[in-house]
Write a protein that binds this DNA or RNA. Structure first.
Lengths: 204, 204
DNA sequence: CCGATAAACTTAACAGTGTTAAGTTAACTT
DNA sequence: AAGTTAACTTAACACTGTTAAGTTTATCGG
């Protein structure tokens, strides 16, 4: 069994090597011009070899981007655990979401613009463990905290979470795809957006 | 000159024919699978012919989508002229923006996800006449009206306009690319988002 | 009416893309 | 040593957008 184990480990290592080289190429080339053939050439292998380790291009790119999403989830969990005012935590979390998106435009593109139906239905999404699900739940928990501590008006946490998410998502996406937008300063718009959203749900 | 005019008119007509056929194909195929070769085949021409009327694929698709954007601008101008409470007008305009995006996902994709730098810098964008510019200005004017009639707090109209725009944009984009999102009802989320944004800037 | 010019359109090709069936080489098992 | 299996490659399919060069067609001046 030791030999089989060794082979398996080697296979794992090679998979990692593909991921790492792919990430490099992906970052220097960007989503639009990344190609399986370029990756294969960079690795000194034939393009078909990659298909022995990944189902297809989307599968590979998604693996890369999920690793970034995982890091973000960790950071988000960190924010959630901090001994801070829930509203301040929410603000921090939303601004962190925006910051991460803006700093990793290509990763963000893959996470939200390829694999169109990876989410499935809501129940599917909520049952199957995924980083996207856990991130959503982390945000929702902070929102719940805001309501439970009477700082937010009584409203459906799910609705608030989705409202906040799409709004921040919009800022990221617009900034990523239109290089000169927003016209006003990015950071100011980010803060204004987040503060506006919070103000709409804050009591008094 | 009459013959030259006739030729020019014919050329115009043929251009229109390409646009109309392309829109048909574009709507039935969607952005991802629309191709110049399919269009040429549908028209009974060689693919190269299209390049005599349009610079490239993006140019053609953008022309199609700008026509929809033009219609929307007209509708928006209509709303602006209505004898209504400015805040109600703003609400109507924002909901109309969302509705149009959701009803024409492929057009929306082209308008915001191809031609990444058509906008240019803010001054360029503001000087060169374009539908995007006029739409932006139309929204901003409604926002100004809300401030001038003392219904909105005193804040920079440009900042508010951009904040509102990216937020609604986010809802549209998320709905378009993730077919099952949002989990809660689309229309409810749209109303919640718009009302939240307005609430954040409304006096009292 | 005829030859020159210009416009309209096509053929064939370039340079790519993702992906797969089939074949080859190398390593391990019996 | 022979058979099996895993790893990897070759060659091809079926596409994509785009362009240089060639052909057909129609208009214009003499």
């Amino acid at each position: 069994m030791s030999i089989k184990e060794k082979r398996d480990r080697h296979k794992e290592e090679f998979r990692r090597e593909i991921i790492d080289t792919a990430r490099e190429l992906f970052i220097e080339e960007g989503y639009e011009t990344f190609s399986m053939r370029k990756l294969a050439q960079k690795m000194g292998f034939s393009p078909t070899t990659i298909y022995l380790y990944f189902k297809d291009k989307d599968d590979l790119l998604f693996t890369i981007c999920e690793e970034l999403a995982e890091q973000c989830l960790l950071e988000l969990t960190e924010i959630r655990k901090q001994n801070l005012d829930p509203v301040k935590k929410l603000r921090k979390a939303l601004l962190f979401h925006i910051k991460t998106g803006l700093e990793n435009p290509d990763h963000y593109k893959v996470l939200f613009f390829v694999h169109p139906d990876i989410y499935g239905s809501q129940t599917e999404f909520m049952q199957r463990p995924s980083i996207a699900r856990d991130t959503h739940l982390a945000f929702k928990d902070i929102v719940k905290e805001c309501i439970d501590t009477n700082q937010f008006i009584k409203a459906d946490p799910e609705t608030i979470t989705e409202t906040f998410f799409v709004a921040t998502h919009g800022l990221i996406v617009m900034s990523i795809f239109k290089s000169n937008y927003p016209w006003i300063d990015r950071d100011i718009l980010a803060k204004t957006l987040v503060d506006s959203l919070i103000r709409a749900y804050r009591k008094q």
